[in-house]
Amino acid sequence: MTDTPLIIIAEFETTAATRAPFLVACIEDSIRSVTDEAGCSCFDVLTTPDEPDTVILHEVYDSPAAFDAHQATPHFKAFSNAVDTLKIRLVSVRRTVRNIPAPK
Rank of each mutant, 00 (worst) to 15 (best):
T18K: 01
K87N: 13
I56E: 03
T73Q: 12
P103G: 07
A82V: 10
V45P: 02
F22K: 04
D68Q: 10
T18E: 08
T85C: 01
E28A: 06
N99F: 10
T96Y: 08
T47D: 02
V97M: 08
F12G: 05
L46N: 04
P101M: 03
C26D: 02
H70M: 04
A25N: 00
R32V: 14
I88M: 11
A69T: 11
P52Y: 04
T73D: 06
D53H: 11
T15C: 12
D84M: 14
D68A: 11
A66G: 02
Q71S: 13
L57M: 06
F67Y: 12
R94S: 12
P103F: 07
F43W: 04
E37V: 08
R32A: 15
T14C: 15
T47W: 03
D36C: 07
A16L: 13
A66W: 00
P101Q: 04
T48S: 10
T48E: 08
D3G: 09
G39N: 00
P49N: 04
T14K: 09
L46H: 00
S92R: 13
E37C: 01
L6W: 06
I56S: 00
V83H: 09
K87Q: 14
Q71T: 15
T14Q: 11
K104D: 08
D36L: 13
N99A: 10
E28P: 00
I56C: 03
R94G: 11
T18M: 08
A72M: 14
I100Q: 12
P101C: 05
Y61V: 03
A65S: 12
G39Y: 02
A66Y: 04
V55F: 01
S92P: 06
P64N: 02
F12Q: 05
I8V: 15
A82S: 14
A20S: 12
D84C: 07
T73R: 04
E11S: 13
I27M: 08
S80Y: 08
